[in-house]
Nucleic acid binder design. Structure first.
Lengths: 343, 343
DNA sequence: TCCGCCCATGAGAACGATTTCACGCTTTGC
DNA sequence: GCAAAGCGTGAAATCGTTCTCATGGGCGGA
């Protein structure tokens, strides 16, 4: 029967139902404005013909793509892919498509802004801190500004809506956990200092130690680099100390894993001889042996809230002020931390 | 200056350059057909005005979205996110956008087909084996069929272009590696038998053992479930055996990790007492202690080739026969396998 | 009974690009 | 020297929606 090589249009449906295209459109978008009898006739025609709305034409007319763009530095990174998963779930349920952008070219800001100007995406979820948001605003603001919700390991431009996690508080909680287990000699492996968040973790560590009147020795604070290898190097540092901390707080899980493995080589067992707490609850954390105690970043929540916020903005529920959401990390207790060793 | 609230159109550029819209369009799509002087004038006008082509209008006219749809069962799963990363890279470099679809509704086939019929996507990259491709074809084939390239843990519909990895051969290579290290008593932890690929790994294991005239004892082949916990259970099974294999081939990395951890509790050390090889080279493999020897599935390659194949098809380089690409896994030797223990 | 209002619907104009066709002008070939 | 071919360009149709008006009929109020 249906052998038309071209997909059916709203006109075909109209003809079949004996109404005008305008009416069909109304049935599809605001059924309340159409009488019940025609509504039924049209619906029947739609399913008979197998009509699907042409989104390109719709976008053109409405100046709206019903699509959001997600830009992340590395989709392959499990941290981001979890977020992306949540984004897709939310967006889908609200009728939006999700376009992903990966490693951008030499002018990323323009590249992203073009998605907006070309009417491919209505808004941007930005997870790449390397991008200069000021530049992006310059591009996007030339005619009309692209709605953006950002979330990344930097203190974002205050003008931009952002979802961040409270790293300071999370670091304090990590220390609190070790403290509760009886640890008093606590060390820290920090992340690259140029980034804001690792720095906040360091600051939070210091604050927590200070408030509990615990000693902060210089040789107990090791400047790491976020890698497993870096954790191993830290291990050789701590292993040679005359007086060693009984617990370590690592600024991410990779370094935690590295330091545990490195200490193991040196005969120092976790959690028997030393407790280690990580940060992020990355995929490796749960499967490592010993399973890693860590501060979980609420990744699904970040993605979910970011997507919801952006879509709310797109649908007009816009507030005058830039939106700032601060999420809390949660402590996930596993095997790598335990009571302080007696003796 | 530029305070027009609406984005500039091709007409605006035409006016500015003193030519017709048709000419601007030609400059943008096939510059060769325009004289150099006008070409320069138009290009200048384009950058002066800051014109970006409206993709919605373009899609409508061309009946083409220049976008592909990627459907995967779980984007959060690192296995798929690596693939997605590769897809995005390829697609971007060829000027295509990537839409992602996650957990679909109650009628996934229709959902995906609608993306095509609605002119949002030109083709589909399918990584979800749970989807009935026949059903999908039924939806998509009604008017014109949506180009599909599939890749998943099932033997795909022979009518569909597919990218798969050679699990049989990979399993044989895993056994070969253990054999080369001197192991003769080799066990296997298989995956859920209802899936094709784990089954192929089991078959490959059997074949390799048979060809090397090695014994296949029933109690040395354990039916696992792809989880870490399952690996732990397998460990307690192997630990209690009177005669134990000196090496194990696990059908995925999670079970390999689980079995290593479980055996460790029982005082059996890897690789000292037993060698274990995994499968997939998932993200945990490299960071585990001991770092996991494993058969790496060429994930980036799967994504890359799938995207390239689909785009080639979209651009007319279509072959009459369905395309089938079979990729090989590569052996990644790390720490979890070693020479057979003497004695 | 008649006026006015509301409700359901249709005709037609956008939305912004591409592309066919036609039209001059220059070049080529004989 | 003239026909034919080629090249660069513009006018206008087209892609499939949505939405503004306009219209006609039905109904309630005076």
């Amino acid at each position: 029967m249906a052998k038309a090589s071209k997909p059916p249009t709203i006109q075909d449906v109209a003809r079949q139902a004996g109404v005008s295209a305008a009416t069909v459109s109304r049935v599809l978008s605001s059924p309340g404005r159409v009488s019940q009898s025609t509504r039924e006739r049209v619906s029947k025609a739609v399913s008979e013909i197998g009509y699907t709305i042409n989104e390109a034409a719709r976008s053109l007319r409405l100046r709206r793509a019903t699509t959001i763009l997600a830009a992340m530095p590395g989709i392959g990174n499990p941290f981001y892919s979890t977020i992306l998963d949540a984004i897709v779930t939310v967006a889908t349920s609200r009728g939006y498509g999700v376009l992903v952008a990966g490693h951008l070219g030499d002018n990323p800001a323009k590249w992203l802004a073009d998605y907006y100007h070309s009417n491919r995406a209505d808004g941007l979820l930005l997870f790449d801190g390397a991008l200069d948001t000021r530049k992006l605003h310059a591009f996007t603001g030339e005619n009309a500004s692209m709605p953006i919700v950002a979330s990344y390991d930097e203190l974002p431009d205050p003008q931009i809506n952002s979802i961040i996690t409270d790293n300071l508080q999370a670091a304090e909680r990590a220390v609190q956990h070790l403290y509760d287990l009886g640890h008093r000699r606590i060390g820290h492996i920090s992340g690259p200092s140029r980034n804001t968040f690792p720095h906040e973790r360091l600051v939070g560590f210091r604050k927590a130690m200070f408030e509990r009147q615990l000693p902060i020795r210089d040789e107990w604070v090791y400047a790491g680099d976020y890698t497993i290898a870096g954790g191993r190097v830290a291990a050789s540092h701590f292993a040679t100390l005359a007086e060693r901390p009984t617990a370590l707080f690592a600024a991410n899980d990779e370094m935690a894993i590295g330091v545990i493995a490195g200490l193991h080589r040196a005969g120092i067992e976790c959690p028997r001889d030393i407790s280690v707490i990580g940060f992020d609850d990355s995929t490796v954390a749960a499967s490592f042996v010993p399973a890693l105690t860590t501060m979980r970043q609420p990744r699904e929540e970040i993605g979910r809230i970011a997507a919801e916020t952006l879509i709310n903005i797109l649908e007009g529920k816009r507030s005058a002020e830039p939106i700032r959401v601060v999420l809390e990390s949660t402590l996930v207790v596993r095997e790598s931390t335990g009571p302080v060793a007696s003796g």
